[in-house]
């Protein structure tokens, strides 16, 4: 079962009425599930060698972003040293990071929060 679905079911069940069981162990499990379910972030880091136009093109290709959005992220990388390009489930994030490395960008997958 999907982790998020499991947590949702738990919350509905907990709020169903006074007769429902409210064991502390379940609370603990739910928190652990939530931690597991934290979104992952694809972060791109600044690199003085990669050309700005190249980085913009890569963002457009990998994430399908329009040029303006890709440029905004590129400028954020350039000025702030990093930019979060995407958040979501780990598997997809890994794929994005792999693609970005294929274009020789400095990219990492990080847990949000």
């Amino acid at each position: 079962m999907n982790k998020r679905a499991a947590i949702t079911t738990f919350h509905v069940w907990k709020n169903a009425g006074p007769s429902t069981i409210d064991k502390p162990t379940i609370e603990k499990e739910a928190r652990a599930e939530e931690e597991l379910d934290l979104p992952w972030q694809v972060v791109v880091h600044n690199d003085p060698v990669n050309l700005m136009s190249y980085v913009t093109m890569v963002f457009q290709r990998v994430f399908g972003y329009p040029r303006e959005k890709a440029e905004r992220h590129m400028l954020e990388v350039h000025h702030k040293g990093r930019s979060i390009l995407w958040s979501g489930m780990r598997e997809r994030g890994e794929l994005y990071v792999q693609q970005l490395h294929g274009y020789l960008l400095l990219a990492t997958l990080e847990k949000a929060g």
């Binding site: 890994e94 490395h101 990080e110 847990k111």
Partner: peptide
């Protein structure tokens, strides 16, 4: 640089 790590070092499994 060419084969830079995919995480910030915390995710050893990845």
């Amino acid at each position: 640089r060419i084969f830079s790590p995919p995480t910030n070092g915390k995710e050893t499994e990845i």
